[in-house]
């Protein structure tokens, strides 16, 4: 009898222990489980608007996408589909001038398109970022003799619509700003000798320089810059702050991780070769991401 009683008591203890363990496991699962309903930014399907004509950043050529923005998109897609449970599609035909309108009209849920964060734009759309910082430089034909600001006096410089580049060019008083519809048109004008330089963000210029044939002889003028640093962010329509902040947390992990450096090195080999300190020049700090992400104006 005594032995039977001890056995029953042991069995009860084991069952109780199992029940407690099961309860703990359930509690832990409930606590650690992500509270998402297969929707992000209020949608089950996320459209990401991108450029397709910027070598080094976002280029669609020979049925293949390449560039740093493209690499960011692929990592973002993996996270959105894997962690948030939404379907992601790419809409790679957005022009620089149409980026805000795409978000506001709902044609795009996210914009990953070398999209500079500015206080004016922050009033219209939210940003997550920056994921890259660059400065405005100059792309010229090899042997142009343009090396410093004084050399730009009287020169025709091409920028295109919907970018921040033209504003900064206003600082160069004696140069002539020539408009283009897009980056490709400006570079074509440069190759044809119709303009003396193309001015936009250096990462884009290095993309064009590395994409051009040697015979075309385009080069980025080292250390010739104008205007303030440009911080590229992911554009998000306003009204989804919680999802926006989750995306910002993901971006901080991405920028702080190895993917960012690997993707940058792979997308912009000419830049990394010419700028040994490319990480400190182009990689944003967490504080900068916090200051610009999901807010109506930059935080201090």
């Amino acid at each position: 009898m005594k032995g039977t009683s001890r056995t029953r008591s042991g069995a009860r203890r084991r069952r109780a222990a199992a029940a407690v363990a099961a309860a703990l496991a359930l509690t832990a699962a409930a606590c650690s489980g992500k509270d998402h309903d297969g929707r992000f930014l209020g949608s089950q399907e996320i459209d990401v608007a991108m450029h397709k004509d910027l070598p080094g950043m976002s280029l669609f050529e020979n049925y293949t996408y390449s560039g740093f923005d493209n690499a960011l998109y692929l990592d973002l897609e993996k996270w959105l589909e894997g962690e948030e449970g939404v379907q992601v599609t790419r809409n790679a035909d957005v022009s620089s001038a149409a980026r805000i309108a795409k978000l506001q009209s709902g044609d795009a849920d996210l914009v990953v398109a070398s999209f500079s964060i500015t206080p004016d734009r922050m009033k219209e759309v939210d940003f997550v970022g920056p994921y890259l910082t660059t400065v405005q430089g100059f792309l010229v034909r090899s042997g142009s003799g343009i090396r410093e600001h004084a050399d730009l006096s009287g020169k025709r410089i091409c920028t295109w619509d919907g970018t921040t580049s033209r504003v900064a060019l206003g600082e160069l008083r004696n140069s002539v700003s020539v408009g283009g519809t897009d980056a490709e048109q400006c570079v074509r004008k440069l190759r044809q000798g119709r303009v003396d330089a193309v001015s936009t963000d250096q990462v884009l210029l290095y993309g064009f320089a590395q994409h051009s044939d040697d015979a075309e002889g385009l080069e980025v003028v080292p250390d010739l810059t104008v205007g303030a640093p440009q911080h590229y962010g992911i554009g998000v329509a306003k009204g989804h702050r919680e999802d926006c902040r989750r995306l910002a947390d993901w971006l901080k992990d991405y920028v702080g991780g190895r993917e960012w450096q690997g993707n940058f090195r792979e997308a912009l080999p000419l830049l990394t070769a010419e700028q040994p300190d490319w990480i400190s020049r182009h990689k944003p700090e967490d504080e900068l991401i916090d200051a610009h992400s999901c807010v109506d104006r930059p935080k201090t």
Binding site: V167, A228, H292, K299
Partner: peptide
Amino acid sequence: VPGAQSCVP
């Protein structure tokens, strides 16, 4: 130049 820079932070 709030349309072309974000330098406050």
